[in-house]
Design a protein around this nucleic acid. Structure first.
Lengths: 132, 132
DNA sequence: ACCCTTGTTGATAATGATTGTCAAAACCCT
DNA sequence: AGGGTTTTGACAATCATTATCAACAAGGGT
């Protein structure tokens, strides 16, 4: 049976009150900063539970961390500068539809998609041009 | 100065002759299996170099491994079964256009996109349903 | 309200991928 | 061929994440 603990609630709340994506470690630090004695392993477990129940989305940052966000807001993707790391959120309703359709067309279910665009942002484009 | 070593060539070739994505460790095992005494750290370095020169694309698998693939000119995307590993190639002209447009709208240049869909294939969906 | 079963917690150890270290070897230019 | 410098590779170090397991607490039954 699934039990309700203040720890799970704390993680759920901390996640929903966070803008954008957070790592498990980051969320743990946030909670500690707010005076919560919650354990790191518990944060990982709570996030994994939220994700598997569909209450949170997870993705991998370019350097391999798992990032989470509350699943209430609309799903979006990222435009990431490969040089300076600047990240811009982008909407992609068309892509959502495409991913769903393509998955269904091949009999796939529970599709999650990894859709990220890497490039050079305006500043880094200028810097690269100047360096040549 | 950048030097040409047989190790770098070996990695480049092993990568291009691989269908789909490979992890650094996987590529290292492949090379060893083929009799190459190349070191693991070297494979990591070579892949990082290829990626930073634009000769390879990298993405993170759902469980946090870095995966690489040769950067082919005419590229396609993948529909990957998260349970059995089945991979289906899918076309995505619409997504190509969208990625280009989105990048340009934010001042980004040299956009490359990583678009892959993970899900459960038909068989694994049935297996999962039966297990419940 | 109290106990009892069982899911949950959390400090810490373990894991596993990736990166740093540094002496020895390989490469490239002259 | 010789020399300066990059690259290699075995191994140690690092970092996020997961497993371990004894102590704890939630919730149902009485």
């Amino acid at each position: 049976m699934k039990r309700n603990t203040w720890q799970r609630e704390a993680v759920r709340e901390a996640l929903s009150s966070t803008e954008g994506f957070v790592s498990a470690q980051g969320l743990h630090m946030t909670l500690h900063g707010a005076g919560s004695p919650i354990g790191l392993a518990t944060v990982y477990r709570a996030l994994a539970d939220l994700a598997s129940e569909g209450d949170a989305d997870s993705l991998q940052s370019p350097d391999g961390e798992s990032l989470y966000r509350a699943c209430t807001t609309g799903h979006h993707h990222h435009l990431i500068c490969r040089n300076c790391g600047l990240t811009v959120e982008i909407e992609a309703d068309a892509v959502e539809q495409w991913a769903k359709t393509a998955a269904a067309a091949h009999g796939f279910t529970q599709a999650q998609h990894v859709v990220d665009v890497f490039g050079l942002c305006e500043n880094c484009t200028r810097a690269a041009a100047a360096a040549e």
